[in-house]
Amino acid sequence: MSKLVIAIPSKGRLKEACGEWFAARDVALEQEAGSRGYRARFAGLPEIEVMLLSASEIASSLLAGDIHLGITGEDLLRESAPQIEGRLAMVMGLGFGFADVVVAVSNAWIDVSTMADLDDICAAYAATHNKRLRVATKYANITRGFFAHNGIADYRIVLSAGATEGAPAAGTAEVIVDITTTGATLRDNGLKILDDGVILKSQATLSASLTAEWNEGARAACEKLFAALGADYRALSAQF
């Protein structure tokens, strides 16, 4: 890795928003010919290699040190590893890709509005059914951390591959932890967010891997890019 490698989302709304964000800072993103859409570059910055990866791959590549910089959702970064301190640095939120990671329960649970209520329900469920309440989510690490912080131990995580909001109706889980932007999907499924159940207010974030190889060339390129983007290079370089 002699060049500076930055990864940006390869598809969907995040990809478009990224392009607009760079364009607004006069950094033009150009598709590299013949790369089948997996590579790009910034006009006038040949020392930077731009890779197009899926948002979750960007999170794991940052943690593994395979790339220097990456743009992906904070939710995916926090889910990728319970401890990110010392492994990656979040440089700046980019003001798009907003989503909240929330704890939601059925509207029919009229007696449940807080995590303390949920704690009671978990304990009562374990006592009466002799098995644990199931929480469907694709955010197992975030869920574990938040439930532990709220002192809830009597539950089980059911990994969900998609359509998590349907789990309570389908009977595959009693509670869900999922992302939401407007809350409409949750409402449509008869679910409500707990008052103190917003775990994370996530947005697209420019992050730097602290485990990647930061040689002279990569540092110089990063400083140049950050100057163009209005990001704080000093705060980052202090962590290398």
Binding site: V105, S106, A108, W109, Y125, L133, E174, N189, G190
Partner: peptide, 10 residues
């Protein structure tokens, strides 16, 4: 009033 919101185990 919660209509057909899931019972969710209770």
């Amino acid at each position: 009033a919660q209509g057909d919101a899931p019972r969710a185990g209770r």
